[in-house]
């Protein structure tokens, strides 16, 4: 997919400059630079331990960067005076382990942050919750508790929960890795539709088919740095680096 026409005029929506992150002595991110344009779908690939999840978690500061800068639109995410909750309102995140709130129904899960963070009236929050649940194909499951839903359904509720906050960017952190194979497709379909609708997405995944079909850019990370990036066909079909070739050879 070509991104030049949408990106040429606009400022990047996410700008990552020389990002560093270490846990104690362990350097996980070692100077990552990345610009994400509005409407772009960036798929981040790499072996485990390459820092791709940490990169994602730095974007909404679930992890505190130890160096570099992250900008979301006109806010510097990792500046000390930044109200991080404002950033998080604009950045949706979906986790590998769903993290639905087990004491609330699907609808309650989607409503909670709308009510408490955006201060939407109860009526509006409920309407939007049902809309978003319908959008992810769970219109008939609004009053179910997470324990009554399958993994795939739970993950779609989690996506609806993020979407209800009208995020500008969505982060997907290996969202299908904890699912049984037959449940993966429903979740990926929702993500594809989101991409089509123009959502800006950063996706950490091992789903190569999804990356090929949907991504506007594929980024290969290893050892805490971006080794190679380009269109999916460039990276998958004609990788330049030895490590990329090695990785793709292992997984396909």
């Amino acid at each position: 997919m070509d991104t030049t026409m949408s990106s040429a005029a606009n400022k990047p929506i996410v700008r990552i400059v020389n990002l560093q992150k270490s846990f104690g002595d362990l350097q996980v991110l070692n100077g990552v630079d990345m610009d994400v344009e509005k409407g772009e779908v960036v798929v981040i690939l790499g072996p485990s331990g390459s820092g791709k999840s940490t990169l994602l978690r730095c974007v909404n500061r679930l992890e505190e960067p130890t160096g570099g800068e992250i900008w979301l639109e006109d806010i510097q995410v990792n500046a000390s005076k930044t109200n991080i909750n404002e950033v998080r309102e604009r950045v949706g995140m979906v986790f590998q382990s769903f993290n639905l709130f087990p004491h609330l129904t699907a609808k309650g899960n989607v409503m909670l942050a709308q009510r408490k963070v955006l201060h939407r009236p109860k009526h509006d929050a409920a309407r939007i919750a049902v809309e978003q649940l319908e959008r992810v194909g769970l219109g008939d499951r609004v009053d179910y508790f997470p324990s009554q839903l399958s993994g795939g359904q739970q993950q779609r509720v989690a996506i609806a929960r993020s979407l209800a906050m009208d995020p500008h960017v969505m982060l997907f952190d290996e969202v299908t890795s904890a699912l049984d194979p037959e449940l993966v497709r429903g979740v990926l379909d929702v993500m594809k539709e989101l991409a089509k609708a123009g959502m800006t997405m950063l996706v950490v995944t091992h789903e190569m088919g999804f990356a090929r079909d949907v991504a506007s850019r594929a980024v290969f990370m290893d050892g805490g740095v971006i080794v190679e990036q380009g269109t999916p066909s460039e990276v998958f079909d004609n990788p330049q680096h030895e490590r990329t070739k090695d990785f793709l050879g292992h997984i396909s």
Binding site: G137, S150, Q153, D180, K192, E193
Partner: peptide
């Protein structure tokens, strides 16, 4: 999880009425 599960609910999405509405032609992976 067993006790609160309503009858007929399993762990699988297969054959359930709740299919995503966002399905597209480009659904293969």
């Amino acid at each position: 999880g067993g006790a609160v599960q309503p009858a007929g609910e399993g762990d699988s999405d297969a054959g359930k009425p709740a299919e995503p509405k966002l399905r597209t032609e480009a659904g293969e992976r």
